[in-house]
């Protein structure tokens, strides 16, 4: 980037005891079981978790595509659970950008990269407080994709399509950028280029960034990562350190490597001390003896 972009204030995220159920004929499916999450404005986090853990549901809730069954989701000053459809639509036009899985689902295959970005910018309301910081070609140039600006996106490679999709998501300079698996199905080189682009957008625009990923490399590139398992936030990584998260009901999810060592059903004794708590298993202790 050769020129300083206009500043965008990233939106803070506050999820409070968010529960989400999917209605099903054979019984409702619980996707999220009381998620509490706070993300400061202008920061970036990665949402990690196995398939079906609820991370994409959380992303959809943050984008206002779904409404939680209970709890609250706040993005900036907007309580998404109380917003009307119209307000949600406006938010998606001005404040929140979501890039769904598979790049071509985010793009008009028959249009060029420039036209796709123009298309994304059509959703921006005129009464938006801040004008868009740059036009389509300017944005693509800034993101190093000037050479594909006028190519039909269907003819681009998978990595290029992914980058155009990210550019299109970032085109409205959102205060919250949500990316669902932006590096899936990409080789390492493409992944790194995409990751670099994502972080560039985050840094340059100051937007809050939430990335859903399976890829530990992507998670490690983010200053903060949140792991979701069985609809709950189980762990957080900050600056390379892994932490378990105590749930509202006092539950703590053990790290997956520990979980393999301590099978389900194992009785643990909790010892409190000045630095925290220890979990001890009488059976393991006797084995150790």
């Amino acid at each position: 980037m050769t020129q300083a972009p206009a500043a965008v204030r990233g939106a803070a995220i506050h999820c409070d005891a968010v529960v989400h159920l999917y209605p099903n004929a054979g019984g409702d499916v619980v996707a999220l079981r009381g998620v509490d999450l706070d993300v400061e404005g202008g920061t970036a986090i990665a949402l990690l978790g196995p398939s079906g853990s609820g991370k994409s549901t959380l992303l959809a809730l943050l984008a206002g595509l779904l409404r939680p069954s209970s709890g609250h989701v706040l993005v900036g000053s907007h309580d998404l659970t109380r917003c009307s459809n119209r307000q949600l639509l406006e938010l998606r036009g001005n404040e929140i950008s979501l890039m769904v899985q598979e790049p071509m689902r985010n793009l008009l295959g028959f249009a060029t990269a420039v036209q796709n970005i123009e298309f994304a910018q059509r959703g921006v309301r005129r009464r938006r407080r801040q004008p868009l910081p740059f036009g389509p070609e300017q944005l693509l140039e800034r993101l190093g994709m000037a050479e594909v600006a006028h190519d039909t996106v269907a003819q681009l490679s998978g990595g290029e399509q992914q980058r155009v999709a990210i550019a299109a998501a970032a085109a409205v300079a959102p205060s919250l950028l949500l990316l669902d698996e932006p590096t899936s199905e990409l080789d390492r080189i493409s992944r790194d280029r995409v990751l670099e682009l994502v972080l560039t957008v985050h840094r340059e625009l100051g937007t809050t960034l939430v990335v859903v990923t399976h890829d530990p490399a992507v998670a490690s590139a983010m200053p903060r990562s949140v792991s979701i398992r069985d609809g709950r936030i189980g762990a957080e990584g900050r600056s390379g350190e892994e932490y378990a998260v105590v749930g509202r009901d006092g539950s703590v999810q053990l790290p997956s490597d520990v979980l393999g060592w301590i099978p389900a059903g194992t009785l643990l004794r909790v010892h409190r001390h000045s630095a925290g708590v220890d979990l001890r298993s009488p059976e393991l202790e006797s084995d150790g003896d």
């Binding site: 998606r92 036009g93 001005n94 959703g123």
Partner: peptide, 10 residues
């Protein structure tokens, strides 16, 4: 395409 437009807040 319609979904995309909705996603972009059209």
């Amino acid at each position: 395409e319609i979904a995309l437009a909705k996603l972009h807040g059209f």
